[in-house]
Computed example of a mutant assay.
Amino acid sequence: MTPRDAADEPSDTPSGSPSSSSSGSPDASRWSDLERPPLNAASLRRALVRDGGLWTSLEVVPATGSTNTDLAGRADELPEGAVLVAEEQSAGRGRLDRRWSAPARSGLFFSVLLKPGPDVPVERWGWLPLLAGVAVATGLSRVAEVDTALKWPNDLLVTVGGEERKAGGILAERAGGAAGGGAGVVIGIGVNVSLRAAELPVPGAGSLALAGASTVDRDPLFRAVLRSLEQSYVDWRAVGGDPAASRLQETYAAGCATLGRMVRAELPGDRSITGEAVAVDGDGRLVLATGDGVQEPVGAGDVVHLRGV
């Protein structure tokens, strides 16, 4: 997700469809799909950017490659709380450098810049993508009135036709720290909002619309997500990023669909582990209980849900 209003996918970002870039001038494409109106940038700024709040700027761009890339490139010159939203993103990235794109105005594609130091030790920054996952799921559930869950570490799941589908994802990347700008984290968030069945590239993809959302109006959805993210982040930062004291660890576990499931973790170096996901530890790692009685924490890799327990 880059600084110009595009949003990258975070860890396994939303599964979108090939981007349907409009040809012709931006004005000609602005209302090319009347069911997908543009975001109201001025209204969003009035609602979200305020004195004393976390969000310090909000920029909406018609299109960009990646909002994460754009925002990370400007991390040293921007204060904490900068938000970059894109109506269309052509080179969004997910975990393991996966590429992702979706039709213009079919979802929420944005990145935010957070600078938790010196309040939070760097070793706890790894909780930020999980925190973002909880905040996104909470905000969307409240406004769209759909059941959401999280697949470890931070894929957003919804139910479509009785099946779990991925409707969003999060990617966190370290940024800044040069020229006295202060190191930070850029969190890219992508959510499929109005994606139609014919636009889904794979069977495992989903959207809020397909999950029966009460609204696919992106303005209130976006406001809800950013307000939820602000509250979660402020609470977490106030206790030095402690996942127990902030109740982040507890809240994440309560909404994680991976726990209690048999899973296969595909790890770097062509190694895999199969076991029951039994916990998320204090470092945000997924703990697997394997068949030989060993509990092994997994900090990175792809996790595949095999069956319920």
Rank of each mutant, 00 (worst) to 15 (best):
D97P: 04
D302I: 13
E164L: 15
I187K: 01
E88N: 04
D302H: 15
G177H: 10
G255K: 08
Y252M: 08
R4H: 11
L34C: 02
G260Q: 11
A245S: 12
P18F: 13
V239A: 02
H305F: 08
T290I: 11
D281N: 15
S111Y: 00
A144D: 03
L113F: 04
V60G: 01
A178E: 11
E296T: 15
V85K: 00
L229M: 15
P37Q: 05
A205S: 13
P121G: 03
G182K: 09
T148V: 11
D302L: 15
V280E: 03
L226H: 02
E230S: 11
I189Q: 02
A265G: 04
V303H: 06
A28F: 07
G282Q: 07
V83Q: 00
W55H: 00
R307M: 10
D51C: 04
R174E: 11
G181E: 04
V278M: 13
V83M: 01
S228V: 03
L248K: 07
D51F: 01
A254P: 05
R264F: 04
T138N: 07
G177A: 13
A289Y: 10
S22V: 10
G282S: 10
D281S: 13
A42E: 14
S17Q: 13
P10C: 14
P297C: 04
A244L: 15
T290G: 05
L157Q: 09
D219T: 07
D97L: 14
V120C: 05
W125F: 15
L34P: 01
E35L: 10
A82P: 03
S90Y: 12
I273F: 13
G182I: 06
H305S: 08
G301T: 08
A209M: 00
G126Y: 09
D51Y: 00
G299P: 05
